[in-house]
């Protein structure tokens, strides 16, 4: 555990809670892509199956359980409790366009040909693109509420901080995980456009609006 990794995890947890709190307190899922949240739930369920057969640390276990339960709760709030407020008309990104390629990539790039390793690879690739329905929705509606922007910023920062963690680990431990690193770089690149808008607009007190 190094500082970058810890900051990455804090940022990840923060993102998850910002989203849950936003939906809960406003009693509304408006502007939130349920499809992205379903993809994230699939990511966590596929990646954290090792909860059943390997124990790494209490921190690791608690975080895994937290991400699984928070993402399930988010999906529940969007599709059940506050379903009436969910903006399904604008949430139209076809998730098979990210599910199928992630699955194919997992069959090509994996560390061993076992079910759990394939599921792990699949989850890494899927996570990289799971935000696409949400970004697509923001583009389609042309704007995002400030809290949604904070959520996206925290979520994007998490993988960017992981990249610093991987650089640090490479130099200090010689640790290198090509699948996670490549997917993590792609994931971070997807947020770059958003990061720019966040810094130039949201941080200056304006609403995030996408130019047509």
């Amino acid at each position: 555990m190094n500082l970058f990794r810890l900051m990455g995890d804090v940022s990840h947890v923060l993102a998850v809670f910002i989203l849950l709190a936003k939906i809960w307190r406003t009693r509304s899922a408006a502007g939130i892509s349920g499809r992205s949240q379903i993809l994230f739930t699939i990511v966590y369920l596929a990646r954290y199956m090792d909860l059943f057969f390997s124990f790494i640390s209490l921190y690791n276990t608690v975080m895994k359980l937290l991400f699984i339960s928070a993402s399930c709760a988010t999906v529940y709030l969007i599709y059940f409790k506050f379903r009436a407020t969910y903006d399904g008309n604008h949430d139209t990104f076809r998730i098979e366009f990210v599910l199928v390629p992630s699955l194919l990539l997992a069959f090509i790039f994996h560390y061993s040909m076992s079910f759990f390793e394939l599921a792990w690879s699949f989850s890494i690739f899927l996570e990289a693109v799971a935000i696409l329905p949400q970004l697509f929705m923001v583009t389609k509606t042309g704007e995002a509420e400030n809290i949604t922007s904070h959520y996206l910023f925290a979520l994007g920062s998490y993988r960017a901080l992981y990249i610093l963690n991987w650089i640090y680990r490479y130099y200090t431990e010689g640790h290198f995980d090509p699948i996670a690193v490549c997917a993590g770089i792609v994931q971070t690149i997807l947020y770059c456009d958003f990061f720019y808008l966040y810094v130039t607009k949201v941080l200056q007190g304006r609403k995030l609006q996408v130019l047509p």
Partner: peptide, 10 residues
Amino acid sequence: DDDEDTKDEL
């Protein structure tokens, strides 16, 4: 050991 390293991350 290397495997453990990888799976230590979230």
